[in-house]
Design a protein around this nucleic acid. Sequence first.
DNA 1: GATGAATGAGGGTTCATTCAT
DNA 2: GATGAATGAACCCTCATTCAT
Lengths: 213, 213, 213, 213
Amino acid sequence: MATETRGDMQAMPVISAERMQGRIDAIVEAASATFSAKGFEAASIAEIARAAEVSDGLIYRYFSNKRDLLLRVLQVFYERVVADLETESARGANFRERLHHLIRRHLTNFVADRELCRLFLSEVRVAGDYKGSDIQALNRRYANVLKALIEDGIARGEVRPDVSPRLVRDVIFGAVEHISWPYVTGDGTLDVAATADTVTALICGGICLPANT
Amino acid sequence: MATETRGDMQAMPVISAERMQGRIDAIVEAASATFSAKGFEAASIAEIARAAEVSDGLIYRYFSNKRDLLLRVLQVFYERVVADLETESARGANFRERLHHLIRRHLTNFVADRELCRLFLSEVRVAGDYKGSDIQALNRRYANVLKALIEDGIARGEVRPDVSPRLVRDVIFGAVEHISWPYVTGDGTLDVAATADTVTALICGGICLPANT
Amino acid sequence: MATETRGDMQAMPVISAERMQGRIDAIVEAASATFSAKGFEAASIAEIARAAEVSDGLIYRYFSNKRDLLLRVLQVFYERVVADLETESARGANFRERLHHLIRRHLTNFVADRELCRLFLSEVRVAGDYKGSDIQALNRRYANVLKALIEDGIARGEVRPDVSPRLVRDVIFGAVEHISWPYVTGDGTLDVAATADTVTALICGGICLPANT
Amino acid sequence: MATETRGDMQAMPVISAERMQGRIDAIVEAASATFSAKGFEAASIAEIARAAEVSDGLIYRYFSNKRDLLLRVLQVFYERVVADLETESARGANFRERLHHLIRRHLTNFVADRELCRLFLSEVRVAGDYKGSDIQALNRRYANVLKALIEDGIARGEVRPDVSPRLVRDVIFGAVEHISWPYVTGDGTLDVAATADTVTALICGGICLPANT
DNA sequence: GATGAATGAGGGTTCATTCAT
DNA sequence: GATGAATGAACCCTCATTCAT
């Protein structure tokens, strides 16, 4: 609407490239907000288009269908989160510290983007088209950071050699999701620090007293 | 409009209670099968009515809407499963055995009714109307069995007194769900015995070698 | 709209059967008029529903889709026309009279239902779903009346034994369609009697003078 | 909006006439192929533009709309065919030979360009915008070749003076179309020589044995 | 002259729910 | 009590056409 002419910059032949990206971003952002607020089914393309100040049809130039738009929204989110985790994963003096750091980071993601997390958990991971999707690939990359950490812990002699990294990964992610779910859903709060501490402790040391191990 | 009184109005035996219950059961069963097979959205009332050999309209005499029908389907399922768990929970000589037994039982439920589990996880627990529903109450009862077990473990001196029963509950349920999800979704198999063993071991003893605990 | 209660008749269990047929007829009639007036593409289901004083959705209870509705409109028409032709085909003292009668009848159909004829010629026979349709079967039955007439003419020694009935059938129907098309399209008039005479004469005697045959 | 005058405006060689014609030809050719392959509705401007290696917008510089493009495609085709027929029409020693030649030629056109013939018969001649179009004028020219032949036959005393050239024209074209339609639609084959023989014989001599003429 | 991004109207179809019979 | 015919709102997606660049 506001037809503001950019007078700066040399006249690149691709003025539209920026504009185009701007449109795409606007659509993704609008979709992100709308899907988050109303869920996938309840959100309409028309609504998203209006929010992005774009025509309905334009959405279909950049996204092949409504579902694809949802997936792309989450892909953008997931890419950011995965990159973060992969960068940060090596921090900590020993296994336990690194594990603690990773769990904390994971919890932080839930707090920072709870709407998108809910969207992912309730509309995508649960759906039939998740298997084989790009999102699943990202999810696997995300999970592999933890798996690698555990393997490294085993190699360093800090983790029992008989534990299955895959199992531990499932336990941790499952646990964190379960713990965070009420918060993600809009109920209560999530104490990241305390949760990270207790989960780390449980994973590392178990719950039984020595005699019962 | 036609204010003609039908003379053929017999004493109205009013359908027998059993027959009525039979209809309800048939509807719930048909809905269970249809929702399981096609998911909530894709299943239509007409389809369920046909499967139950009942008219579309009759469903609305017993269930207030399609969503309510789904909830009731899962309620019936959950009631059975909760009763089982509550009955079985006390078995085992000590905490660890009882925990193992409970985890195993939990996993068995996923294997025995994976379609209904998927339905619950992907269509109900994730939805907005879950909070405050009867299903959630059942879920809580189910979860409390585990919480009680842990509290008992603490009381008996088998479990560290500082662990949060709520946390452990979340970790275990989250873990089992995460581990079972691929199977529930139709991929691969689930080795109940082995999974119960490893999860129990992890929860009880943690993953770190003594020096790193 | 007018909720008129039929007080007459014994309370048949199927009062709705008439009503239902009435609805179907109304839809077919409305569709017939709308398709004729605007063509298949340009006619909308909403428009037809309005004309039939019926909801959009009801059309889909009786017809599986818009195309099916068009086909059924023409089927009803064609069934009537075929029945007529089959009944009437035997009239006439000899082959030539019978042929003349049939051609005349055929032309009469174009005059009596030119809108439906145009619909058939321009929207159905020309389309990809015509082959193998019920309409095509009716068309064949219609055409076979003529073919049978010619075969009979051959058997009676009135028609040259070497002519292909199929060819003659194509020539006659093709000719009549071509001749009638401008009229069907809304241009000019069609002199049934004169056309029947000249076409019959041409088919029977050819156009060349004896020396050039 | 940006009222900045571009200084790089060279003398504008204005695209050369040949290049322009090349573009037009490419578009017509691409449209011809696409319309033939998928029909008018199913073919999209974008698709045609891609096939012609031209932008969508450019098509609208040379053709006022999609329909116009279709008409021009068929016009190009028809012009070629008409020219052929007009050139060839005089061949043959007598009326019958010339008629035979013309019918054969007409049939040959169906065989040589059946896709375009189908396009013409199913998408153009049948449509509302046919009347008064350039295509119709070409069609008339095409038809007049036959009409003229018949008039000449009458003048030479080879054709009965009482036959209507217009009628004969309709009969022949209608017949050939009807006979060719299955082939044009993709079913079966068309034996040009045999068909030309039998149609010519029928038109010249009729089908009845002498006594019944 | 050429591009292709942007528009936006348009319509077939589904299906939960109701209510006259 | 039971039926199932009827409703009608709601929405994704396509694509001819335009016009700023």
